[in-house]
């Protein structure tokens, strides 16, 4: 037994659609306890699919065809469907991408975030409510008691995302998957939300798999990052190293350069160069043939 027990260990994960298109190709990555790992890549690179594979919410047309996902010491592929759901519910939580569709519109907010604590973690109703109130306070929601009695449409997008973040951290799960939690929000709210995620993460010591396409966000929240392209891992390194030294992969270098930065690029946007993309596509074709 190694000394280092990972919170999440993915090895050789393949996911393909029913028609045979490979969405994830031999993905391997680890997340240590308390680590924030960013998953970056352009749309379609498969970054969200890794999170969904871990949580068991892949769209029905996709199938996990092979590989292992070990969450907090248990290999999910060895568990029965019911056992897997229970294990995931106990050991992981999700911060969804779109706060506007992530709360059930016909149910009160309180019922949506308190009931799971009572049901999954067998807390008492009182205990769950107290925990939610203090968390809502921590994510800077004013008058949390009123908010618990509200319906989602009565709250703003930023408020809803803060509620969802509080709900994800509520039972201090070992792992949280944050699926582009700031993409649907405007820039000023984004910053606030990132601050809250970092604060709660440090407070609870939860490991986070942070899916994003924004290298600026990566620099702000993560210690490590995994760069994906076409369903494959291109690079896996420490965030600090990638931003201070030259990244090892030309695609990662290009991604960093493409991050809009008013001061260094003179206000110009530098896209990922075509030849880098072309090389990657050529490599993919070679692999497939």
């Amino acid at each position: 037994m190694t000394q280092n027990v990972f919170t999440l260990e993915i090895s050789g994960l393949n996911v393909s659609s029913h028609s045979g298109t490979r969405v994830l190709d031999n993905i391997s990555l680890q997340v240590e306890p308390g680590e924030v790992r960013a998953l970056v890549g352009e749309s379609g690179a498969g970054k969200s699919m890794i999170g969904r594979a871990v949580l068991g919410t892949l769209p029905p047309i996709l199938d996990k065809s092979s590989g292992h996902i070990i969450l907090n010491g248990k290999d999910l592929s060895l568990l029965s469907e019911r056992k897997r759901r229970e294990w995931v519910a106990h050991n992981a939580a999700l911060i969804p991408q779109d706060p506007l569709s992530a709360l059930n519109p016909v149910r009160r907010v309180g019922a949506q975030i308190i009931t799971p604590l009572v049901r999954i973690h067998s807390w008492s109703k009182r205990e769950a409510e107290d925990r939610c109130l203090s968390l809502l306070d921590q994510v800077k929601i004013r008058d949390p008691k009123r908010v618990l009695k509200s319906y989602p449409h009565e709250l703003s997008g930023g408020m809803r995302q803060r509620i969802l973040i509080a709900a994800a951290f509520a039972n201090r799960p070992p792992l949280i998957v944050a699926d582009e939690p700031t993409t649907a929000l405007d820039v000023t709210v984004q910053k606030e939300i990132l601050k809250i995620v970092r604060l709660l993460q440090e407070d609870t010591g939860t490991a986070v798999l942070f899916v994003t396409h924004d290298m600026g966000v990566v620099a702000q929240v993560s210690q490590t990052l995994t760069v994906l392209f076409g369903g494959r891992v291109l690079e896996d390194s420490k965030t600090h190293d990638v931003f201070t030294r030259d990244a090892s992969h030309p695609y990662t270098q290009a991604l960093i350069r493409s991050t809009p930065d008013y001061h260094s690029a003179g206000g110009k946007f530098v896209p990922v160069p075509d030849n880098v993309i072309a090389t990657l596509h050529a490599q993919m074709r070679e692999r497939l043939s």
């Binding site: 068991g56 759901r85 709360l103």
Partner: peptide, 15 residues
């Protein structure tokens, strides 16, 4: 069933 709130319920262990 494609909405995020349903996904969230799935993550919380509901069949």
């Amino acid at each position: 069933l494609d909405q995020d709130y349903v996904n969230l319920a799935r993550v919380r262990g509901h069949g």
